[in-house]
Measured scan of single mutants.
Amino acid sequence: SGVNQQQLQQLMDMGFTREHAMEALLNTSTMEQATEYLLTHP
């Protein structure tokens, strides 16, 4: 699906929903950016 499943699982383990985590990974290129994205786009 174009996203790193390991990163997706890590974000879900942090408490984010699958949909939200996927959106973040699709819009960013690193785990750090994805986390930042999730925190700034709740």
Rank of each mutant, 00 (worst) to 15 (best):
F16G: 04
N4Y: 09
Q33H: 05
G15T: 01
F16T: 04
G2H: 13
A24S: 03
E32L: 06
L8Q: 03
M12Q: 07
G2L: 13
M12R: 03
D13A: 14
E19I: 08
H20L: 15
T40S: 14
M22V: 13
L25M: 06
Q5V: 13
T17A: 15
N27S: 09
E32R: 04
S1V: 13
Q6R: 09
H41L: 14
L11F: 05
S1T: 13
L38G: 02
H41M: 15
H20N: 11
L39Y: 14
G15K: 02
Q33L: 06
E23H: 11
A34I: 03
R18C: 05
Y37T: 05
F16M: 03
Q7L: 10
L8M: 07
R18P: 06
R18D: 04
S1F: 05
E32Q: 11
Q5F: 13
M31C: 02
R18T: 07
L38V: 04
N4T: 09
T17Q: 14
H41P: 06
A24M: 01
L8N: 00
L25R: 00
L11E: 00
Q6E: 13
S1Y: 03
Q33S: 06
L26H: 08
G15P: 00
M14Y: 07
A24K: 01
Q33M: 06
T17M: 12
Q10L: 13
E23I: 10
Q7V: 07
E23M: 10
L8D: 00
D13Y: 06
E19H: 11
Q5I: 14
E19T: 09
D13T: 08
S29F: 10
Y37H: 09
Y37G: 05
Q10D: 08
H41F: 12
L11W: 01
A24F: 01
Q5R: 11
Q9P: 01
L26K: 10
F16P: 01
T30H: 03
T17W: 06
M22W: 10
L26V: 09
E36W: 06
S29A: 13
G15E: 02
A21F: 01
Y37D: 05
S1I: 14
Q5P: 14
Y37R: 03
T17E: 13
T28K: 02
F16R: 01
Q9T: 08
R18W: 09
T30V: 02
T35L: 15
Q6V: 12
S29D: 14
N27R: 09
A34R: 00
L26Q: 11
M12A: 04
S29P: 07
N27E: 05
Q7F: 15
M31G: 02
T17H: 11
Q7P: 04
T28W: 04
H20E: 08
V3K: 05
L11C: 01
N4M: 11
A34G: 01
N27L: 10
L8H: 03
R18N: 06
Q7C: 03
Q7Y: 15
L26Y: 07
P42T: 15
T30P: 01
H20I: 14
M22R: 07
Q10Y: 11
H41E: 10
R18S: 08
H41W: 14
Q10K: 10
S29Y: 08
S29L: 09
M12H: 03
L8T: 03
V3Q: 07
Q6P: 07
A21H: 00
A24N: 00
L11D: 00
D13R: 05
G2E: 12
L25V: 04
M22E: 11
L38C: 03
L39I: 10
E23A: 09
H41C: 04
Q10S: 08
L38R: 01
S1M: 13
D13P: 00
M14H: 05
Q5D: 11
T35H: 15
S1K: 12
Q10G: 05
T28F: 08
T30Y: 02
V3P: 08
H20V: 12
T40Y: 09
L25Q: 02
Y37M: 07
L25P: 00
M14D: 04
M22I: 14
A21I: 08
A21L: 02
T28P: 01
L26I: 11
T17L: 14
D13S: 12
D13Q: 12
G15R: 01
G2C: 07
Y37V: 08
N27G: 05
M14P: 00
E23Q: 10
Q9D: 09
T30D: 08
A21Q: 00
F16L: 02
G15W: 01
Q6D: 13
L26T: 09
M12V: 14
D13W: 07
E32A: 12
E23F: 11
L11S: 00
Q10T: 14
T35Q: 15
G15L: 03
H41S: 09
M22G: 04
M14R: 06
T28E: 02
A21P: 00
L39R: 10
Q9R: 09
A24W: 01
M14K: 06
E32I: 06
R18Y: 10
G15I: 00
T35S: 05
N27T: 06
G2F: 12
D13K: 07
V3G: 05
S29V: 09
M12L: 08
T30F: 02
A24E: 00
Q9A: 13
A34V: 03
E19L: 10
N4V: 10
L25D: 00
G15D: 03
Y37W: 15
S29M: 09
H20S: 12
E36T: 05
L26A: 11
V3R: 04
P42F: 15
G2I: 13
Y37E: 05
A21N: 00
L8F: 04
N27Y: 08
T40G: 14
E36H: 07
E23K: 07
E19A: 11
D13N: 12
L26M: 13
H41D: 10
M22N: 05
E36C: 06
E32K: 07
E19Y: 10
L11M: 04
N4I: 09
T40D: 12
Q5C: 12
H41G: 13
Q9E: 10
R18L: 10
Q6S: 13
T40F: 08
